[in-house]
Design a protein around this nucleic acid. Sequence first.
RNA 1: CGUGGGGUAGAGCAGCCUGGUAGCUCGUUUGGCUCAUAACCAAAAGGUCGUUGGUUCAAAUCCAACCCCCACAACCA
Length: 469
Amino acid sequence: MAEKIYITTAIPYVNGVPHVGHAMDYLLADVCARYFDNSRFQAGTDEHGNKIFQKAKELNIPVQEYVDNNSKKFQDFIQRLGVEYTDFVRTTDQDHEKRVQEIWEKVKDRIYLAKYEGWYCTGCERYVTEKEYEENHGICPDHQKSYERLAEENYYFRLADFKDQIREAIESHRMRVLPEFREKEILKLIEDSPDVSISRPKSQLTWGVPVPGDENQVMYVWMDALCNYITVLGYPDKDISDSWPAYAQFVGKDILRFHAILWPAILLALGLELPKNIVSHGMILANGQKMSKSIGNVIDPIEVLDKHGTEAFRYFFLRHIDTFDDSDFTWEKFEDAYNNELANDLGNLVQRLATLCKKNNFVLENDDTPTEVESQYDNLMREFRFKEAFDEVWEKVQAINRQIDEDKPWSLAKNNETEKLKQVLSSEVTNLLEATNQLKPFLPETAKRIEEIFSGTIEPPKEPLFPKN
RNA sequence: CGUGGGGUAGAGCAGCCUGGUAGCUCGUUUGGCUCAUAACCAAAAGGUCGUUGGUUCAAAUCCAACCCCCACAACCA
């Protein structure tokens, strides 16, 4: 058996409930994993940091209990998306914490202690950039407080040591950054990326992994969270060479820079190979606007799932949300896609074709799986252009509707042209099964149902695949 | 002079890198069919391709300038 293809998703910060945007990582990774069915699939949750610590305090529950609950919510969410992972990592796992500390020790010669000075908001409990400071005229808009000039000691990671190697890896496509326009962005960004602060004084951050050998410092998010991709495999205790380097790492564009610059630097420091592909997707907008709690336009993915189910959810987010770029979600678009495409194009096609087969006692004779031919579909899938690949599948579905209209099997039946009728139905069903095969990574349950319907005695489903409301 | 993306039919988008009759989906109008979830198929209407200039036999596509929108800018997916 060939080695497994390792696929990863970003680990969400569990200071809230699953957001519709989280779904993109999982869905894209799942499509990829299902396409190369021999894959190892990581998912997880990021559970350290002040926001979580405070949130738990506000709710007056122990922090560990709080993150346990929230992590569970994400696991349930992933399951409801029909996404099947093989490994789940939590940054509060003991194994993870221990391994991150070991990793820290291994890259110690790339880490140095330095003073950080900047404008700090005691309300937000964070430093702001010079620019933000100027734009807000020195006053935090969220808390109406003046920023304070503070200084503290942080450990920094010597990113500068690896810039050339990383740039070379990206340019040579040894490590691909997708899509292309993001690659350009990252290549520009590398130039003036400063060393990254990877710890905080304990006085400021308690809920985190202690820095080994310095009881006054706690690891800040990056070291802790990014390393999940290898700690979950067992690094450094275990040999991870059957999974690492990852074939594809899926991330949102907002955290691409950390995955395409800092993360490779850490890997290089460890002497590990770089991932083959880093695939970034866009944000989901609501009516063209960024979703935010203050505007109140947040789409709750659970509501969408409750209303329309897993398959419809996957359909919309994989075909009508661009694989790489920002896209708009509106209920109207969702419902149009459901009715016009899932119900009318595909659902109705299955229904009419199954009925035609049944009425004419047609059974597919050689249920050999359709011959797999290298096609545009495969090219697109391998380039992670899932939406376009999905379009390709849909074109096939629509072509079968056209074919049935042209063949007019009902007339053939009326005129007793049984041979021709058999031929025509056979071709139509075969085409549908071919399309179904390609549908599998996107809509696995639907594909399974269609295959069941057309195997053996063909019986149209009593309940339509996608009932209209 | 921060970085990147975008401005193409009523809406949403593709085409631009590798110039050569302006395309897709939805919506609208009309016709066809009856196997099907009032579904399916066909045809039609609808565009100064942000603005101005340049290169060229030829520009949505290349170049220059400008106008407008959006995202990112050390943790709000």
